[in-house]
Structure formats: C-alpha cells, structure tokens
Write a protein that binds this DNA or RNA. Structure first.
Lengths: 204, 204
DNA sequence: AACCATATGTTTACAGTGTCAACATTAAAG
DNA sequence: CTTTAATGTTGACACTGTAAACATATGGTT
C-alpha cells in the first residue's frame, strides 16, 4: 500500500544513518544499508545526497546540534566557573557516549566543512556559545577570550580521545598499562581535573 | 627474472602502505593497492597481514616510532621547560605533517591496541619518555607526574586536531570563521602558547 | 642428495561497496 | 490538463576485503 514516493525519505535516511553510525561506526555505514533499512532501492539515497561524504555531513550536523544542546550555557545569566565545569563534563560525556558520531564530527571523514555551509554553521554555533560564556565570565579582550576558548576546547577534545582509549583498553578487565593507567586516574576524578584546568585557564 | 618468492615482501608492503596512507589517507588504502604497487598478486598481503586492521596496526606502529624519535627527550641530562616546549612543538608538527598517519595512530581504525602488542609497546614508549621527563623536571609523586602528562598530552592532541581543521579551512584563502580564526591565532604563536600552557602544567 | 613440511605466492570466487546512466512514476507549476 | 521537475527503480561497472584451493620454493631431517 506504500506509494512510489516516500514523502519524507531524506529525513528518514538521516535518522537511519545516525543510528547505524552510532551503533557500528561510520566506516561500516553504507549508502546501500541505509537504503535497505528505509525500505527503498539502493540508489534512492543519491536523490538526496550527492555523495557519501554529504551524507556524513548530515550525520555530523545532527551531532553538532546535539552537542550544542548539552553544552550551551545560558549567557543571559551569570556565567560561573561551576557552569563551565558542568558544560565541560557534558562535552566529554557526549564524546564518550556518542563516540562514533564524535569521530565523524571531528575526524577527517568530512573533509572541508565549508563545502557544507549548514554543517559549518552548526559547528561554529557550538563554539560561539563558548566564546560568549568566557566573554561574560571576565572582561577580557577578544584575543584573550579566543585564546581561552581554544585552550579549553583543545583540552576537552584531547581528553575525549584519550579517555576513549582507556574505555576500550579497560573493557576486558586486563590491567591498564602505561598512559592508560594515568588517564583512567583522570577519568575517575573528572570534575576535579576540570576544575584545576579551568582555574588555570580562567586565571590565564 | 624475479623469483616466485619476493624475499622481503612484508617490509615492502608496510613501506608502501605508509606511503599511500600518508598520501591519500588510510581510508583509500587497500590491500589490493599495496599488492599491486609491490608487484605481487592481490591476495599475497594476506600471507603477512591477517586482516586489513593488522596492516593498519603496522602503519600506525611506524608512526609511533617516528613520533618517538622526534619527541623523545634525553632524560639522562637535565630536563628543562624549554626542552618540553621544543618537544611539544615537534609533537604538533608531526601531527600536522603526518596528518593521515596521525589519524591512524589516534583514531579508531585500529580498535584495541592490545591485539597488537608491538604497537602497544611503541605507543607506550612515547608516553614513557614524557613521564620520565616530567619526573626529572620536578620531584613530584607518581600521581602528580601522571596527571601532568595527561594534561599536556591531551592538550597537544587536541591542538593537533584543531590546527588541522584550520589548515584545511585556510587552504582556499577564504577568511577563516568562528573558532578557526582563534585557532590560527594560536598556530601563529605556537611557542608562546605552549610556554603558557606548560608553565601552568608545571606549576600544577 | 632425497624428502617433506612449511612458508610464501597465485588464481579464482563471492558478497559487498560507491556511483553512474537510463528509465519510471508521480507531484507541482503553467 | 499538460508539461516539467523531483523523486524513485533497474542495471551496470569497477572496486573492495577476504576465503578456498592450488603452486612453488625454502629449510630442516633423514
């Protein structure tokens, strides 16, 4: 009883792609698989995504929307270090809980965001809120604010990468070795660690 | 006049894989392509690499060896902040100049390093030198040392990721937007930035 | 020196992939 | 109501990872 035209295929394909991406990693996500999952012919997705990369871009965009949601600080109210810590924890948790999507967002699967303006906007929006937060926190120059942002951002990004390796290595119960041991140490005291880091950044 | 047996195929395959990986990214690297490039039948690599992931592991290992070479500090001599900065710059440059290999090393293409003990050792060796450096720099507890390591490491790792996005976005001469602007700001003053960061870390 | 197990190659095959071209059906615009 | 553009389908091509069966050379044991 289904009609020749789906009606809302693009949306469903993206949803499907997001699901499959997060479940099995974007490497195993295929044009054909999302087509099959959506009950449509194998090349139908090409009416909505010029290339696989552009599908990736859509998935990444959903990721950034979600990330924005959990990390954005209400800058109309007073911004505190505590809020920044909270946000930072949320950022890291997002990275850990949406690991595969996170890869898509910050990896090389989508080469140049400026080929996907909507994606670029979403990505920038996340950052913009962070910038505003720091601006509200102290009366710094634009340059200093930017500096603080990048410092925090790169730290968070780096932590996600490292904590994930810990998570993977720690799964089978084998004792952690080398750097992983220390990393898990941080993971268990994330709040404390972030407090220290943020204190450093804020004091500049 | 070539004989049936190659004699040194594994080595050549790895070399070939490293080259192709760095040139076009590991995603486009195929078992068949390295076979062809090495003038050998398409399935010959399977005599040396059980799976594609294990080939990836070998490429990643070469990467860690190279990284170790440019970042290791002579801990038999006095360790200074200056040396740590130097090493940090080298780390970041490695990440930028060997971007594709870096992805392989720190991404998800090789899932669990403990499946490749040699790789794990190489990866840990890089970290171990950093640990020793911090140990030599100040008389801290193991815990504090580990903490400092992870803080620096995640920072460096994060910076590489972000500076690369800048590099990509900045290629076509378009004005950088949002976070990229600030990131490029850091890129242009890397030494200064790292000095600040390291000062913060060392003081704890 | 003859023999044989093993390591290393090759050929063939299968199922899956991204993507293109040609065609079918429908919804929207005139 | 007809035409056009949007959206779907079929079929094809060249490529991929990898398994199975087979070929050849190497090295150790008699």
């Amino acid at each position: 009883m289904k009609s020749y035209h789906h009606g809302n295929l693009k949306q469903e394909l993206i949803l499907c792609a997001c699901k499959l991406c997060e479940e099995n990693g974007y490497e195993t996500l295929s044009m054909r698989s999302i087509a099959k999952e959506s009950g449509v012919s194998q090349t139908a997705p090409y009416r909505h995504f010029e290339t696989k990369e552009s599908l990736y871009a859509s998935v990444a965009m959903e990721g950034f929307k979600k990330l924005s949601k959990v990390t954005s600080i209400d800058t109309s109210q007073k911004v505190t270090k505590k809020k920044l810590i909270e946000t930072s924890v949320n950022y890291i948790n997002f990275g850990l809980e949406n690991a595969n999507t996170y890869d898509l967002m910050f990896g090389t699967a989508v080469g140049d965001f400026s080929n996907y303006p909507e994606l670029l906007d979403c990505a920038n929006a996340t950052y913009e809120n962070m910038r505003l937060s720091f601006a509200k926190l102290a009366n710094d120059s634009e340059e200093i604010i930017a500096y603080k942002c990048i410092t925090l951002w790169s730290m968070l990004h780096g932590l996600v990468g490292i904590l994930r390796k810990v998570a993977i290595a720690g799964v089978d119960g084998e004792p952690l070795r080398g750097p992983m041991t220390s990393a898990s140490l941080i993971g268990d005291n994330l709040d404390l660690h972030l407090d220290k880091v943020l204190t450093g950044i804020i004091q500049n």
